[in-house]
């Protein structure tokens, strides 16, 4: 169980604001911090890792105090044993793939752990390569393996997949989920991708201007109350065109462009660029198998 309460002054694009967040994460849970950029998600994660210190705060992990500003306790990041994945991978350029993993080992660790992780993530063929020769997806897989090599007690993922293209992102999400289950490790991911949050997290905390404004299961949080439609996607409106008594909406859902028909009262409150949810009954879609 992780209990944290963080109070820190942040300098955002629109001036100063307070990061005032309280969160509880159960052992083995996968939680997402969701929200637009610049609301303090990454800072909150960095405070958990000890890379930044809040003015006031309290962090206890399984009863052990990591931070208690009132008592003057602030455990160094070196002693917190967290696995951290950075948006820019942060692989050590001077070390090979294997070298990166070996460097991450704890002093008392069995060297075999490196080989096991390389096998588990199918990185064996790349182990003698230097990071600069790897693709973005490969780099982030190495970064994930490295984070796990240090036998962390929790995994902190700071928008690890945002620099990757959609297809590789989906594959890495599978990978992260698989390893998180394999090790039964508590994980907190910072993300602004609804699809990613849906896929990975059991619980999502929505952050706005430094505070957690909503939390719950991704379905409860993103479907705004509860709607029985099963076929639901969020996207951005690219274009609204009138056709007869109806309107045609062109919507970007993920990397796909779809067109849907909407009535006048639906369109009245919409404009280009708005975020919308497209909901249909699970009965409607026809399913066609694609040739391989």
């Amino acid at each position: 169980m992780i209990c944290a309460s963080i109070d820190k002054c942040l300098h955002g694009a629109d001036g100063e604001f307070r990061l005032g967040a309280e969160l509880e994460v159960a052992e083995g849970e996968f939680v997402a911090l969701y929200g637009p950029s610049g609301v303090g998600k990454t800072t909150l994660l960095r405070c958990l890792a000890g890379l930044e210190q809040p003015e006031r705060g309290l962090i206890t992990v399984n009863g052990e105090s990591w931070l208690d500003t009132a008592q003057g306790i602030n455990l160094a990041p070196q002693l917190r044993r967290v696995g951290y994945m950075f948006q820019d991978y942060a692989l050590f350029p001077n070390m090979t793939v294997r070298g990166n993993l070996e460097f991450a080992l704890r002093p008392d660790a069995n060297k075999k752990r490196v080989s096991e992780l390389l096998d588990l993530m199918e990185l064996g063929a790349l182990q003698q390569r230097k990071p600069e020769t790897l693709s973005g997806g490969q780099k982030q897989r190495v970064a994930l393996a490295r984070a796990l090599a240090s036998e962390p007690r929790m995994l902190l993922l700071d928008e690890p997949l945002s620099a990757l293209d959609a297809e590789i992102r989906v594959r890495l999400q599978d990978e992260i989920l698989r390893l998180q289950k394999h090790f039964g490790i508590t994980a907190i991911i910072v993300s602004h991708d609804v699809g990613e949050v849906y896929k990975l997290a059991q619980r999502v905390m929505v952050m706005e201007a430094g505070t957690i404004v909503r939390q719950g299961t991704p379905t409860a949080v993103f479907c705004g109350g509860q709607t029985s439609g099963k076929f639901a996607f969020t996207g951005h409106i690219l274009e609204i065109e009138a056709m007869d008594v109806l309107f045609s909406l062109t919507v970007l859902v993920g990397s796909q462009i779809v067109r849907v028909v909407a009535s006048r009262d639906e369109v009245q409150q919409l404009q280009q660029g708005d975020r919308v949810m497209l909901v249909s009954k699970a009965f409607n879609p026809m399913v066609l198998k694609l040739a391989d």
Binding site: G225, Q226, S228, K281, N284
Partner: peptide
């Protein structure tokens, strides 16, 4: 009946 969506605001 299968075209009807139920919405519930808690």
């Amino acid at each position: 009946a299968n075209e009807v969506v139920l919405s519930h605001e808690p």
